[in-house]
Simulated assay, not measured.
Amino acid sequence: MSARPEPQARAPRAVKVRDPAEVPHTVDANDPQRLDNQLCFAVYAAAHAFGRAYRALLNEHDLTYPQYLVLLVLWEEEGLTVKEIGNRLFLDSGTLTPLLKRLEASGRVRRARDRTDERQVSIFLTEGGRALRELLACVPNQAGGMTGLEMEDRRALLDRLVSLRDGLHAGVHA
C-alpha cells in the first residue's frame, strides 16, 4: 500500500472588505417593508389557512369554500339574481357563473331565467341544497374553533375585519 501524502496547509484567503453600501442591511423589526409587518400578507396568509381548514370540513360534502359561501347567501334569501349574489360575495359573474353551474349539476341549486328579462338569472335552492343547511350547521363553530380564539375574540376580529374591508373598499372607490 502506498502512503497517503500529507495534506498541504492552505494559505489563508485574503478577506475582501466590502463597501458598506454593498452590504445588505439587517432586517429591522419595525421596517414597513418587512414581510412580517405587512397587514395585507397576514390577511392573505390567514385566508389561505381558512381555505385549507374549510376544505377539510367541506370535502366530505363535495363542496368548495366558494360554493359554501353561495349556499350561506341562499340560506338567508333564495331567488337572488347572479348579480345580487356576486355583490354579497364580492365576486364577478365570470367567477360566479361556473360555480353556480357546478352547484346546479350537483343538485344543490337550480337556475331560472326571469320571464320578463331573459338576461336575469335567479338562483333557488333545491331540497338537497336546503338539507345541507342542517348538515353543515356545525361548520362555523368547527372552523372558528380551529383559530384558537375564544368566541368573544372571534367576534371582535370579525368586526375589525369588516371595518378593514369596508375602509379599503371605500378607499378604492374614492
Rank of each mutant, 00 (worst) to 15 (best):
E6H: 00
E6N: 02
E6Q: 14
Q8K: 15
A9G: 02
R10L: 15
A14R: 11
A14E: 09
A14S: 04
R18G: 07
D19R: 03
P24M: 03
H25I: 02
D28T: 01
A29M: 09
D31V: 12
D31P: 04
P32K: 02
Q33V: 11
Q33R: 13
R34Q: 09
Q38S: 15
Q38K: 14
Y44K: 08
A45R: 09
A46R: 10
A46E: 14
F50L: 12
F50D: 10
A56Q: 15
A56V: 15
L58N: 04
N59C: 13
E60D: 14
H61D: 13
H61I: 01
L63K: 06
T64Q: 14
Y65C: 02
P66I: 10
Q67P: 00
Y68N: 09
L69H: 08
V70P: 01
L74N: 02
W75N: 07
E77G: 07
E78V: 03
G79K: 10
G79R: 05
T81N: 02
G86W: 02
R88N: 09
F90I: 12
D92H: 10
L96T: 05
P98I: 05
L99A: 03
L99P: 00
R102K: 14
A105E: 14
S106M: 08
G107H: 06
A112R: 13
D114G: 03
R115F: 06
T116P: 00
D117L: 04
R119F: 06
Q120K: 09
V121T: 13
L125Y: 05
T126G: 05
E127H: 13
E127V: 12
G128M: 12
R130M: 03
R133H: 06
E134H: 13
P140Y: 05
G144W: 01
G144I: 06
M146Y: 09
T147K: 04
G148T: 09
G148R: 12
M151A: 15
E152A: 12
A156D: 11
A156I: 05
R160C: 10
L164M: 08
R165Q: 10
D166N: 15
G167K: 08
H169A: 12
A170H: 13
V172A: 14
H173W: 08
